[in-house]
């Protein structure tokens, strides 16, 4: 009987300890913020960089845990993942998205507003959606594609003495980034009347297609003085075609995005310039803004263009050291740092 009492007391103590531990754990996990990082997928270097940027932010805050969800560019996958995440973490969720499509941002906004979850969007936005009109929509962040298109094209036109024949490799038709980069290139071109745009072709951001198109251009379009590509992957395809014709380094090529292979090509002299859109900065600060809003810290609300790094032979070594060999370090408490300019949403 004495033994039984002892056993019961022991069980009671264990149960009390377990309950206390669980309560403490629950209290502690209740303190945490859960960051949803929604990107297209991780097979593109840039998207992987975006995810890593938000992870950098999460790791800089002891009270933030993160989950990466690839949407594979599919609207439903993204929305289902978001709903599941909110069901799990409730109002302790914050979220940052590279949306699967501009149209889907309306659905994202609906779900987050209803659940009371602060969120930031990058790149795309449906028409009529403005952060100012929504309580939990913290901000829209993206580099200015028109400026990227303009800067890279201007640099190339300068390099060829503002005269001659150039060609343009276009991104996916119907995508906002592709259209704005093309507009930027056209603006640069309009400042150089002696340069002729011999042809532009859609290569869908794809290296193999860009290579095949450039091969055909080189065989049929006569002398080409410069190739402007809407992204680095297509620029690398063009460079491989130039290598085959032993023209690499002689015909300048520019791209946009800032992937490692492009930096290597710039270093090796095969590529003239690119713009590193800095996925680390974009997603890191998009997450920082959502966190600031959720925790009641002062922050500006709205749509913003973020800083990008123009990369040429002069600074490529430094960029490789900062972005490839290491990871950039940011002071996420300085929320003004990433902002290039305020963006007008029509």
């Amino acid at each position: 009987m004495k033994h039984l009492g002892f056993k019961l007391a022991a069980i009671f103590v264990i149960l009390v300890l377990l309950a206390a531990g669980t309560a403490a754990w629950a209290a502690e996990s209740g303190e945490k913020w859960h960051l949803l990082i929604s990107v297209h997928n991780l097979d593109s270097e840039f998207w992987a960089q975006e995810a890593a940027g938000a992870v950098l932010f999460a790791e800089s805050r002891p009270d933030v845990e993160y989950t990466i969800q690839p949407s594979n560019g599919d609207d439903n996958t993204l929305l289902q993942g978001l709903k599941d995440f909110i069901a799990q973490h409730g109002k302790r969720s914050i979220a940052v998205f590279d949306p699967s499509s501009a149209a889907n941002t309306v659905n994202i906004a609906d779900i987050c507003e209803e659940a009371g979850v602060y969120y930031s969007l990058t790149w795309h936005l449906a028409e009529g959606l403005r952060p100012e009109d929504y309580k939990y929509f913290v901000g829209l962040f993206s580099p200015d594609d028109e400026v990227s298109g303009y800067k890279t094209a201007s640099h190339l036109l300068e390099a060829i003495g503002k005269k001659g024949n150039v060609v343009y490799l276009h991104g996916k038709i119907g995508e906002d980034s592709a259209a704005r980069r093309y507009q930027g290139m056209k603006r640069a071109l309009s400042e150089c009347p002696d340069v002729k745009l011999v042809d532009y072709q859609v290569a869908d951001w794809d290296q193999e297609k860009a290579m095949a198109i450039t091969e055909t251009w080189l065989a049929t379009k006569g002398p080409i003085d410069g190739i402007i590509a809407a992204n680095d992957t297509m620029a690398l395809g063009a460079i491989e075609a130039l290598k085959k014709a032993e023209l690499n380094g002689k015909v300048p090529v520019t791209g946009t995005d800032g992937i490692q292979a492009a930096f290597d090509a710039i270093k090796g002299g095969d590529m003239l310039a690119t713009i590193a859109n800095d996925g680390y900065l974009l997603f890191g600060y998009a997450a920082a803004y959502a966190y600031a809003a959720a925790t009641g810290q002062p922050h500006e609300k709205g749509a913003f263009y973020t800083n990008a790094v123009f990369v040429t032979k002069d600074n490529v070594e430094q960029v490789i050291a900062d972005y490839i060999k290491g990871k950039p370090t940011f002071d996420f408490s300085d929320l003004k740092f990433p902002i290039l300019s305020k963006r007008e949403i029509k």
């Binding site: 593109s44 193999e208 290579m211 992957t233 491989e240």
Partner: peptide
């Protein structure tokens, strides 16, 4: 051909 190995080559 492309001197680079990535999943997107099959797309």
């Amino acid at each position: 051909r492309l001197k680079i190995g990535q999943a997107a080559m099959g797309s």
